[in-house]
């Protein structure tokens, strides 16, 4: 990998980040109801008080200066105060991060494993009914709203069959005897949300894996392996699959936006105490600083993941040279 490629990728990521910051800064200032007008609802307020309040909040300074101050505070980790929680936004988000990571990680592992498996089956049995069935499954899950799948799962598995708890991450009001007890309880709560999220993203993975494997299978070195007399199973499992898996890495990063959208819906439906549910609550409470903070952090993660995927892909596939 050459340094020019690296530099260009860094530059592109920085620009995307800058656009996010601009959206975040200016959009939230265009909206009606700034802090000054909220304070100035007091009937005894006079113009000099208005000026005083404005200078107190720095609203009398030019927009660019305000933007610079905003950036400086962000770098220091000051994302403002949540209207609803009356705590620093960064702390509120931090307390919810773990739950989202657990959910996303579990779903991602299930989805990658199943995606590679299904894609392999579809490619090997190309044109057969199994292939068509896997395609059909991918199409239907693509067309399905994530939250709806969650609702149907809750109604069927939790309410109708009573197999899983419906709400939250742990059973509330219970003191766990030990770590093992707590883990079992977490697993029970995690299972259905993770499966919902995995089902929604697995279709895409399997389609990518299928077409990537078909690509690889038509390459010369596969013919060579066959000519050497290797069994079909060995050719596919040892020669084709390792290379065909490569695009999945980029897809995971590119799909991150999709994953986040899915997690947001799944968390909302299952009351999973993560960032997604937090965003839903912030929307309901019209907690703008919190909303802004979540959007910024989530965007930052996505940009970082895309950057990492670019670098990793350039590293794993030596043919990539820009």
């Amino acid at each position: 990998m050459n340094s020019e490629y690296l530099l260009r990728k860094i530059f592109h990521s920085a620009i995307t980040l800058f656009i996010v910051l601009i959206i975040n800064y200016f959009l939230f200032r265009i909206m009606p109801g700034d802090p000054v007008s909220m304070i100035m609802r007091n009937p005894n307020a006079n113009p000099s008080m208005l000026a005083q309040v404005k200078s107190l909040y720095g609203f009398d300074k030019p927009q660019l200066v305000q933007f610079a101050v905003y950036l400086r505070e962000l770098v220091k980790g000051n994302f403002g105060m949540s209207f609803f929680y009356r705590q620093p936004v960064i702390d509120v988000i931090g307390s919810r991060l773990f739950a989202t990571l657990v959910l996303a990680f579990a779903a991602e592992i299930v989805a990658i494993f199943l995606g590679i498996l299904l894609g392999k089956i579809a490619a090997v049995r190309r044109g057969e009914p199994v292939d068509a069935a896997i395609l059909g499954f991918s199409l239907v899950t693509y067309a399905m709203p994530t939250f709806w799948l969650g609702i149907v799962f809750i109604a069927f598995f939790c309410v109708h069959l009573g197999l899983f708890p419906t709400v939250g991450m742990y059973t509330s009001g219970v003191t766990f005897a030990g770590f093992a007890d707590k883990a079992v309880d977490l697993a029970k709560h995690l299972f259905l949300p993770a499966v919902t999220l995995a089902v929604v993203i697995v279709g895409g993975y399997s389609m990518i894996m299928r077409s990537s494997l078909l690509d690889v299978l038509s390459e010369d070195y596969i013919t060579t392996a066959r000519a050497k007399g290797l069994s079909r199973r060995d050719v596919i499992n040892r020669h084709a699959v390792p290379n065909a898996r490569l695009p999945i890495i980029t897809i995971i990063a590119i799909n991150l936006g999709f994953m986040i959208a899915g997690a947001l819906q799944v968390e909302t439906v299952f009351s999973w105490p993560g960032i997604g549910r937090l965003m839903y609550e912030a929307l309901k409470a019209r907690d703008y600083p919190l909303l802004q903070g979540i959007f910024l952090i989530v965007s930052f993660c996505v940009i970082l993941a895309n950057f990492a995927a670019d670098i990793m892909y350039g590293y794993l596939d030596p043919r990539i040279r820009y």
Binding site: H12, I15, T16, I19, V20, I23, L27, F28, I30, M31, L256, G257, I260, A261, L264, Q265, M279, L283, R286, Y288, L291, Q292, I294, F295, V298, S299, V302, I303, N306
Partner: peptide, 22 residues
């Protein structure tokens, strides 16, 4: 194209929700 890339990368659902809320 940089602007386009940014819109491709940005998490679309949070972006939509933020815009809709505003």
């Amino acid at each position: 194209m940089r602007v386009t890339d940014a819109f491709l990368v940005l998490p679309w659902l949070p972006l939509m929700l933020v815009l809709a809320a505003l």
